[in-house]
Amino acid sequence: MNSVLLTIDLTKAVADEAIERKDCVVVAYHPIIFRGFKSLTLSDCQQQSILRLALEGISVYSPHTAVDAAPGGLADWLADIVTGHLPNPEPATHTAQPEKDSPETIEEEEEEGGGVEAEAEADREQPAEAKKKPQRPRMSLQRTYSKPTYPSHRPVDTSKTDLDPSSVDHTRSVISPVTGVEGFEGAGFGRLVTFNEPQPLTQLVERIAHGVGSPKGFPLAIPQGKQVEDIQIRTVGVSAGSGHSVLKGVEADLLFTGELSHHEALAATEKGQCVITLFHSNSERGYLSSVLKEKLTEVLKEEWERVRNEVAEAQALTPEWEDAVKDEDVLVECSERDRDPFGVVILQSSKQEGKPLS
């Protein structure tokens, strides 16, 4: 099996996954090496992942800048989301399994007639002597890691959403063009979307939430004195990851990116702009499953067929090549262990612990 593993970051967990799967290549969107090294050493945890993969004969390729700038790449994917192309989120999560007593588990128990409320009702019906049994600690119910799902490249089921999945009329331009690359006219970093008609900010928030996999929450900044329900958006500046270098100086009603610093977001809202951030890699991760996986699978199948035909015509093949040529399969999968280091903690209402701030 010729298998490729797609991931945003090359972490130790992802390296373990690739080795267990016996992948041939890891396509890690973010480069793991950002500066020149005189040596690679096992004392550095990230370099250790590279060396372990090399020892297993697994190559690593990082297409970060190319994917950001390419027409139809990450920037256009985010622009597609904000203009109404709604990928259908997969039901499975690849961030964390719900632990016992997590809100997700409790919700399932309640649907089956169990859970906290059912226990409380049963407790009221018992004699006083039976009520002395130890109660389940409620504090354990307050801790859960957010569980975003990832979009897949399938049409949205319009019967299950109030949003119109057809693309909203708009024009789109590149914020920072890359010129002189033949065949890639229109390449560049960031996109400026201008709607023909202003769009309610509330609808854009819903559209973005659907498009990136319905996370439990993400930051939204608006100018002071404004109400979210009253804001209309005509222009949107889009950039994946850390967007300040691309979006600074862009005159847009809404900045849609992975992350901005406190002072960058404050400067934007002081100018009357709104800001939506998804956490750095959550603005990038869905692209792997909804776009890159399918495109890469198609290209690799064609290339592997060409290589097989060339090798099959050789006069003498080693046993290893004979076995390889017989294998027609090419598999591209997204990592199940890749996730943004930040999640959203969802707190249930509970009695306050500790002293309140004065």
Rank of each mutant, 00 (worst) to 15 (best):
K131M: 15
K131E: 13
E110S: 05
V193A: 03
E111S: 12
S176Q: 08
E185H: 12
E110W: 05
T158R: 02
P165Q: 01
G180E: 04
E197N: 15
T105W: 09
I208D: 06
N196D: 09
V116K: 15
P198K: 15
L163G: 00
E185D: 13
G113F: 03
D123E: 08
G180W: 04
M139Q: 10
E111R: 13
T194N: 12
K133D: 13
E109H: 08
V178S: 02
V193I: 08
P137Y: 03
M139A: 12
T144N: 11
T202C: 15
P200H: 14
T144I: 13
E121P: 11
S152K: 06
I106L: 11
I106F: 07
V181E: 05
E109T: 06
R172Q: 03
V156N: 00
D123H: 06
A120S: 15
I106S: 11
P155M: 00
K132N: 09
E117V: 04
A120F: 14
E182F: 11
A187F: 03
V193Q: 04
H153C: 12
Q126T: 15
K160W: 01
A130S: 11
T194E: 09
L163A: 01
H170E: 03
E129R: 10
D123F: 06
T179Y: 14
H170I: 03
L201P: 12
S167W: 04
D162C: 01
P155T: 00
V174P: 03
L163R: 00
